[in-house]
Design a protein around this nucleic acid. Structure first.
Lengths: 170, 170
DNA sequence: CTTGATTATGTGCGCGAGTCATATAAAAGA
DNA sequence: TCTTTTATATGACTCGCGCACATAATCAAG
């Protein structure tokens, strides 16, 4: 009946997502999928293009071009995978690491700023609720990659998304 | 110190925003900004292109082309504004109304679905928290348009964003 | 070990969407 | 009235992405 909550949650999601994206674009000149790609590669060095693709919701071709651009910008390196000779192992260059770190820090700061009006109790409540929601939401590994595409894995101990995945195996 | 909350909130925002966007694209074949444009026009019939632009974070030219496409698709109509003869008054066609309604309903359903694991108490807590956050976040009218770009105004009584705007006048 | 199916990547071509610069008309201000 | 600002439109161009297709490697049988 009451659709108010859904409206507010949607607006809140818009607000946060917008702020993070524009922050990434302002800080370093890196558009949406590029930022996510850098973060994912930093999170999992040696990741294959195909795996990356599942987290970016792009086509093969689109992902290859994206990597082409990032490689051209000197942020990402392709190397031959040892395990699978078809696959490409992606890694960040020193500059790529720096940019990825800047993006993650910026995101952290933007979100933190937008939460600053909350009391400690409210933070705790929000954390519990969001944790529960994420855990219930994750569908499969690709979905987890997509959701966590801009997470800082260093900061996310006890990731509820991983936990959610284990409890509902694909 | 604890950056975990920020990570979780960011992931949650991603999750919701993605789900809403893909839902809009699946349901009707309407990409991101188009959906937002339809919702905003529905929310405020007779809205000018320039006003619309502020809510979409596009260029002027980009907004004009967007309206061109939506008009070409038979979803939107341009008419002369009575008040300002330079301006264009935008309105939805019958089909546009239907599509907009479908998008809003789909969004409602998607978000509602992702909140279904919460108890009544948790919903109430989340509503209070998000309300507070939105109220503190809104900067100006353009920002409000952007945040609420996919809101169903019918469902949003007592919109905290409007309240937040009044308390901090531009 | 050979052969066919699947998987990971790369590429030519084209389109859609958006920006920049510029143009025109109307409103506002001096 | 003259100048400046505002709202819209358009031509030229760019960029990112998808589709269709090609190649190489792995896997799965037989």
């Amino acid at each position: 009946m009451t659709e108010r909550l859904e409206n507010l949650v949607g607006a809140f999601a818009n607000s946060i997502a917008d702020a993070v994206l524009t922050a990434a674009k302002d800080e370093v000149d890196v558009a949406g999928p590029s930022a996510a790609a850098l973060a994912l590669i930093q999170h999992e060095p040696g990741i294959a293009i195909e795996t990356l693709r599942t987290g970016l919701a792009l086509t093969h071709a689109g992902t290859v071009r994206l990597i082409d651009r990032l490689e051209g910008a000197g942020l990402v390196e392709r190397s031959a995978s040892q395990i699978d000779k078809r696959a490409v192992a992606l890694s960040l260059t020193a500059e790529g690491e720096a940019v990825a770190a800047a993006i993650l820090a910026r995101r952290q700061s933007v979100i933190s700023h937008s939460l600053k009006s909350l009391s400690v109790k409210e933070r705790e409540a929000l954390e519990r609720i969001v944790e529960k929601l994420l855990q219930a939401t994750v569908k499969d590994v690709a979905h987890a990659y997509a959701i966590c595409r801009l997470c800082d894995d260093e900061a996310c101990e006890d990731c509820p998304i991983e936990a959610g995945l284990e409890s509902s195996p694909t």
